[in-house]
């Protein structure tokens, strides 16, 4: 039997492999999303000036119509404007990362070597899941650092830490739920491409937009529970931790059940 030290070594080498194989892609995604966040934050002084130039009566009409343009600080501005890039951009990147982790070996026939060694299928799949979770954490931490650096340069006095941390936390939860969901879906499939990994986060994102736009309608309000994006939009700078957690709870259950079924299916299927 392979001893524990050897098994740890095998798992570690597999864990490192995934990052090495996707190194270039990871760097490009980080550069693109990071650059978008920096541009967004860099536009804060200009946006602030433009909002200030809007006549009061027009501004009042806009806020009456439900359009929230007001921001008192760069943090406030970023929470309103930067969330799409951070949440949706990250969701697309991470879901593609998951899809690549799980399909590449089968598409390129490397599975013949990978799955014919001494690690069990469960070990391999859990190692890949650990990769995905680590990448999700790295993404959110790196983007938080990028945001903070950009905000320091633009308006360091306007940085309010707790809402930024709350937004990062909600993004992290959202991304973990999405990658788990996508991971589970891809465990059922061997040779699919990136289609599902792109379609699912987009679908859930647009669902959250629809849910927000019909939030006045009691009947349609239930839509907000169908997507894990909604708590991000619930958040306010004053009470950042006071959001509706029900969508998260629903998705924890869905993702948990699906991943258990997915792992069970993956252990039994033919390659």
């Amino acid at each position: 039997m392979m001893n524990k030290v050897m098994k740890r070594r095998a798992i570690n080498s597999l864990y490192a492999l995934e990052f090495n194989l996707q190194k270039k892609s990871i760097i490009w995604w980080f550069i693109v999303i990071g650059a978008l966040l920096i541009i967004e934050i860099a536009l804060y002084p200009l946006m602030n000036m433009m909002i200030g130039a809007i006549p009061d009566d027009v501004y009042n009409d806009m806020t009456d119509a439900g359009l929230n343009f007001s921001f008192d600080s760069v943090t406030d501005y970023f929470i309103l404007q930067g969330v799409e890039v951070l949440a949706l951009g990250g969701a697309l990147f991470l879901c593609c990362f998951v899809a690549s982790c799980l399909t590449r070996d089968f598409r390129n026939k490397q599975s013949e070597f990978l799955y014919s060694n001494s690690l069990s299928r469960t070990d391999i799949i859990m190692t890949k899941y650990a990769n995905v979770v680590t990448m999700t954490a790295i993404y959110n931490v790196v983007m938080l650092i990028v945001e903070l650096i950009a905000m320091c340069i633009v308006d360091y006095k306007g940085i309010v830490v707790s809402p930024l941390l709350a937004m990062t936390l909600y993004c992290l939860i959202l991304h973990l739920l999405l990658v788990t969901l996508i991971f589970a879906i891809y465990l059922f499939k061997n040779k699919s491409g990136l289609g599902i990994a792109i379609a699912v986060p987009l679908l859930l994102y647009f669902l959250s937009i629809i849910a927000l736009s019909v939030s006045q309608n009691e009947v349609a309000k239930f839509l907000q529970y169908l997507t894990p994006f909604t708590p991000l939009y619930d958040m306010s700078i004053d009470k950042p931790f006071n959001v509706n957690f029900i969508p998260y709870i629903i998705y924890v259950v869905i993702a948990g059940v699906l991943i258990a079924l997915g792992i069970n299916r993956f252990r039994k299927k033919d390659f």
């Binding site: 492999l17 026939k109 060694n117």
Partner: peptide, 24 residues
Amino acid sequence: PSELSFYNSMTVRKYIEFILKQKG
């Protein structure tokens, strides 16, 4: 195996080491 596919960016040495690690 009859059909061969490796991780193309790895050197021969690194690939053999990777497989041996997987074998313990």
